[in-house]
Write a protein that binds this DNA or RNA. Structure first.
Lengths: 343, 343
DNA sequence: GCTGGCACTCTGACCACCCGAGTGCCAAGC
DNA sequence: GCTTGGCACTCGGGTGGTCAGAGTGCCAGC
């Protein structure tokens, strides 16, 4: 009973504080929520909550604000992700379906997420290493030069030009190419890039010895494309929301902006999420391993073509953030993007 | 004589204000510059400069700060672009030469520019419409499906898949492709994209009638790639510098961030510069047509492969900005990037 | 275990004050 | 005719005091 009400008080405090961005006192709470008890009782509850480290008072005679632990409890047990309205769902769908290519999908997604949540949105480009091979193409482009094209399930296209040493425009060259192309596609199509890479190394033994020199240069080029780390990219939008976000940390906005420019950091955070199976992850304040983001929270999730998680997306904002709203938006957007990438 | 000294005073004011970001008074000026006259004289000069609208006093008993017009005069007549040191030049060169592809070049460039100037750096992706065709490749990828690849002189690769209606893996199909590929490359290689596009439309008449259906689908796909507007992209770095930039407009940082997110706006501004021949352009404060950027200045220039201007780059910062330094950095970086893209 | 009441505390707003930086102007000097 | 030293004036910003309000903790009673 008692315990239960205390949690209701905590929830009310979080909600009010998120809305007003001012410390909330016992009286204000009573006015805005039907708690059915008096201010004094609420005060007692608050005292207990403070002892438990869930809320804190900036100074003696101000209201309370939730601590990181308070938000954590709120997110874990006191809130449910509020579903997006039909209209919002449709809006998301139609906006994203208008995209013409991968760049455009990512661009639209990040802007959409920023405007839905009024926070900073972060979208990771579909990661090469977690996507799989759709097709490999070998294109002779004059003399001994060959264009090796790798197309992934996420729509990304990587290409390399290699010099294979022998003229490819002869009949022999052509037929060698046809064989090799078939072999390579048989070995790699549909596989995750890492697997494809290991398949390729064993290809050498299975193939006709006369083709080996050619095969080796092509495989080398492909491996390069496959292990490519640098292609891990993220895109941001809505950084302006940081300053407008309620004067929360207007002062300390600098470090946050700096942290956001460190794409590597963001990638790490996204990556960690994607690993853990793609469900919604919330990182609150100091839970964040990176100093610059200690005063912020992140809501992230994985997305990908169909059910494979190939990248992450999410939002970054002040710890005083509308968690249910952000979680709903992040989840909804991820679902739609995944659906679109599946094509 | 008189006039001359007055300009020296203006220059001193600009320099001091840029450095200290505090209104500069007559006494402070004397301490830091050898003007050879007394404070009273400087005061008289200041009064005149104020009448001419080149400087202004925030309030009665504070020093003066330059107006937009004052900065303009400073940039036009009182400053020379200070050359970068040998060491800096080398650093720029080696950093940029390490880039592995176009994305990487742009990424490194924008970060470099941000850290050199400690401002927000903006780099436009080499614009498709102003670059030219390096090579067109046609790749059959099974059945009637054909991958059309367009490679530009700036290293950008665009591709489209088209369904041409007939099977291409037959002997007839192959030889048709070879012919068409040769024709298309002959017509387009080396041409600016717009020209290439018009060449293609006339190709239809010259080609063997039996190839026309095939040619038409390929040309249609190419045209799509060629006119592509959406590919106009910009990349930003150093937004954190905005807040750290001396508390200048810490309050009004929001609108600026918003304006910077409007990539279209930035593109317009860059575009305008590129048009006018690629020389260094400086836009000061209210000279800027976009409301959000009224309190900022931009230093921009064009760059491109060799001498062709294909895109713009520059920095955005407070009007109180180190113009000579920014101009030097922008120019130097543009030169190096152009050189690298020329390969 | 809840409630009303009361004394206490702290912040933030408001105000008055003063100091110092900086100005404008003037009369004298080169 | 420009330059200079001098002087009165102005105004912003910092300091310190006061006050009201919001909020708390605690206690005694139901």
């Amino acid at each position: 009973m008692n315990d239960d009400r205390r949690l209701r008080v905590l929830r009310a405090i979080v909600q009010d504080y998120v809305e007003t961005s001012e410390p909330v006192g016992s009286k204000a709470l009573l006015e805005r929520h039907q708690l059915g008890v008096s201010a004094a009782t609420v005060r007692n509850d608050m005292a207990v909550l403070e002892e438990e480290g869930l809320i804190a008072a900036p100074h003696t005679s101000a209201g309370r604000i939730p601590t990181d632990a308070g938000y954590r409890l709120f997110v874990d047990r006191l809130s449910q992700v509020k579903p997006m309205s039909q209209a919002e769902q449709r809006a998301i769908g139609t906006l994203l379906e208008g995209a013409v290519d991968l760049d455009d999908v990512v661009d639209r997604t990040v802007r959409l997420l920023a405007s839905l949540t009024r926070q900073v949105a972060v979208v990771q480009y579909p990661s090469l290493s977690r996507s799989s091979v759709r097709h490999v193409e070998l294109v002779p482009i004059g003399g001994p030069r060959l264009l090796v094209v790798l197309i992934t399930t996420t729509g990304r296209v990587e290409q390399r030009v290699v010099d294979v040493g022998t003229d490819l425009l002869t009949d022999d060259g052509q037929s060698a190419l046809v064989t090799l192309r078939a072999e390579i596609n048989a070995a790699t199509t549909g596989r995750v890039l890492a697997d494809a890479s290991s398949e390729l190394t064993s290809l050498d033994e299975r193939i006709d010895p006369s083709l080996r020199p050619l095969a080796r240069s092509v495989v080398a080029a492909l491996e390069e494309s496959l292990v490519e780390e640098r292609e891990e990219r993220v895109v941001l939008a809505g950084t302006a929301n940081l300053v407008r976000s309620g004067g929360d940390f207007t002062a300390s906005i600098g470090p946050v902006l700096e942290a956001l420019e460190e794409h590597v950091v963001l990638l790490k955070l996204m990556g960690a999420v994607a690993e853990q199976g793609g469900s919604l992850a919330v990182r609150i304040g100091a839970e964040n391993p990176y100093a610059g983001l200690r005063s912020t929270s992140m809501v992230t999730t994985g997305y990908g073509a169909g059910t494979d998680v190939v990248a992450g997306l999410g939002v970054v904002g002040p710890t005083r953030m509308d968690y249910p709203g952000a979680m709903a938006a992040v989840r909804a957007v991820a679902t739609y993007v995944s659906r679109i990438l599946a094509d």
